[in-house]
């Protein structure tokens, strides 16, 4: 029995796309690179101490004093360990892929909540995206977007967008039927119903999805460094390849601090707004 030539098919599809859609990929590449660079530039603009103070204020406003203290001490440690620039680069990558995930994921989630056919097509694709080993995306990403931070963002988005889509869908479907009915009964248009009733009520669930997405894209920083994305991931990768145990631990610790601060901040900022 002859082997089904899946590998050949994918190969030629990727080559065809790279040949014919290069204008599109160049445009996407330009936009993403600009956004990442801008965010990184913005974060590196103030002195680290000032950045830490601002972070402290935001963390305090978002909730509690312990969070503010932890954020400030954590980032001071990062500054002390001399990983500041790399951390800011990684932060820019995470925030960019988070933004892209929200911008794409929320509308797709809304679509799947409204349309059963769309849901039936999209949900299996999400399963596919999440379970396919992330390394596999890296190659086509490099083919389309060359080396650097852009394919890193793309790979992060593919890997981390599913929770935003799924939980947006769930959030909207969870809105009690009688509230949707009430909104209809008063003569809302579809947009009014979505923006005045469904989305506000879906917000807690949706934000849980966004939080998950941010965490997942942070977990991609090390993998992204393998294709040339600068940042703390690159430090981890270098330490691992050079068997520098101590340095590897330091860089890993920075990733942990970043993860905890991002997680608690993204959870709390929404809760504060709700109050």
């Amino acid at each position: 029995m002859p082997k089904i030539p899946i590998a050949e098919w994918v190969q030629s599809l990727v080559e065809w796309m790279s040949d014919h859609l290069s204008v599109l990929f160049d445009a996407i590449s330009l936009i993403i690179a600009t956004v990442v660079d801008f965010i990184a530039w913005l974060f590196l603009l103030p002195h680290p101490i000032i950045f830490i103070l601002i972070l402290g204020v935001i963390a305090y406003w978002a909730g509690r004093i312990p969070l503010a203290l932890f954020s400030m001490i954590g980032f001071l440690l990062i500054y002390n360990l001399d990983y500041w620039t790399q951390t800011m680069d990684s932060l820019a990558l995470v925030i960019t892929s988070g933004l892209v995930s929200i911008l794409l994921g929320v509308p797709i989630g809304i679509l799947t909540a409204y349309n059963r056919t769309a849901s039936r097509i999209i949900i299996p694709i999400l399963d596919f995206m999440q379970t396919m080993p992330a390394f596999v995306y890296l190659l086509p990403a490099v083919t389309f977007f060359s080396l650097g931070v852009v394919p890193g963002v793309i790979a992060s988005v593919i890997f981390s967008i599913p929770p935003t889509i799924r939980l947006t869908q769930l959030g909207i479907k969870q809105v009690p039927e009688e509230l949707v009915e009430a909104s209809n009964a008063f003569g809302s248009t579809a947009f009014q119903k979505l923006f005045k009733v469904q989305l506000p009520l879906a917000m807690p669930t949706l934000m849980a999805g966004v939080n998950q997405t941010i965490m997942l894209s942070l977990s991609m920083v090390v993998i992204a460094s393998m294709i040339g994305a600068q940042g703390i991931g690159a430090e981890v990768y270098r330490a691992v390849t050079q068997l520098q145990i101590g340095k590897g631990f330091e860089a890993g610790l920075v990733v942990v601090i970043l993860a905890i601060v991002l997680d608690r901040l993204s959870q709390n900022i929404f809760k504060t707004k709700k109050r």
């Binding site: 009690p176 009688e178 509230l179 009915e181 009430a182 909104s183 009964a185 008063f186 005045k196 009733v197 009520l201």
Partner: peptide, 9 residues
């Protein structure tokens, strides 16, 4: 319309 379970937002 007024609803049985109030259906307030």
């Amino acid at each position: 319309m007024v609803f049985q379970k109030f259906a307030l937002f």
